[in-house]
């Protein structure tokens, strides 16, 4: 399998406090890698290092390298906007913009270039279908996105990310606010998406990691304890810490 992301000796500091310590991790094309670990273990920060969202709250420092398709994304001449366009992110709480469903979707593409209405409409339909939302909203695209249910909003956000045609999608605990039915819809969508995209899933729900991911990484206090095939991690992990965490005997 082809390497999509390569992380080498990554240290991340926020306000001089170390958040991630010497992380070495590869992510392959068309896989779902899930990252599990307790709160404050640096999972979300890791995602924000990959799409450089960490840059927004400027007081940080990154050491080591992050390569995407062999290119170091922390080189000085990297175009951050282009990079973020290639890497979608779904936040823990769905963030529909206070606009109609349709306007939410076309917001991303229009940030980058002018596109004809026909092409936009085609793209809207395609992305809503990919996010398994098309059937539920096709007759009310011009209604406010805020009127959708939580699960629908999260899938709308997913569709919105797909609209800018990313290569990698990061999920930051995407189901933490959703009921089991919506959760399973999102998970099924992730299975479909994996055929075309590379997915990284940060989750607090170890069962979810076991259900959907190909490989699982366990982070603890900023250190990568173990990364392996999901089956391996959940049946016979190498580290005792991993074992304690997945069996709920942590602390």
């Amino acid at each position: 399998m082809k390497k999509k992301i390569a992380v080498l000796h990554l240290n991340v500091f926020i306000k001089d406090k170390i958040i991630l310590k010497d992380i070495n991790l590869d992510v392959y094309e068309n896989e779902i890698l899930s990252i599990i670990g307790p709160a404050n273990s640096g999972k979300s920060s890791f995602l924000r290092v990959i799409n450089r969202m960490l840059d927004i709250n400027s007081d940080f420092r990154v050491e080591g390298n992050v390569f995407i398709d062999g290119e170091d994304i922390y080189k000085t001449n990297v175009n951050i906007c282009d990079l973020r366009k290639r890497i979608g992110i779904i936040f823990a709480l769905p963030v529909p913009l206070p606009l109609s469903i349709y306007d939410n979707l076309i917001y991303g593409p229009l940030l980058h270039k002018k596109i004809s209405v026909e092409r936009l409409n085609g793209l809207v339909e395609k992305c809503l279908k990919s996010a398994s939302l098309w059937e539920e909203v096709k007759d009310r695209l011009h209604l406010s996105a805020l009127q959708l249910s939580g699960g629908q909003q999260q899938r709308l956000c997913l569709a919105r990310s797909l609209m800018v045609e990313p290569e990698i999608i990061l999920f930051d605990e995407p189901c933490s606010g959703l009921d089991p039915v919506s959760t399973s819809k999102v998970e099924r969508t992730m299975f479909e998406l994996k055929k075309r995209y590379t997915l990284i899933l940060v989750t607090n729900n170890t069962k979810q990691a076991a259900r959907v991911s190909d490989r699982t990484a366990f982070l603890l206090s900023g250190k990568l304890i173990e990364v392996d095939q999901t089956k391996q991690i959940f049946t016979s992990p190498k580290s005792k810490l991993t074992n304690d965490y997945i069996t709920g005997r942590f602390g």
Binding site: N51, M53, I56, C81, D82, L83, R84, K85, R86, G88, I89, F91, L93, V95, L97, Y107, G108, L111, H112, R160, S161, M163, V164
Partner: peptide, 15 residues
């Protein structure tokens, strides 16, 4: 205006 609205623009590659 919530910070999350700003983050959406960033995450889609907007300035």
């Amino acid at each position: 205006v919530p910070q999350s609205y700003r983050d959406v623009t960033y995450s889609l590659g907007g300035s």
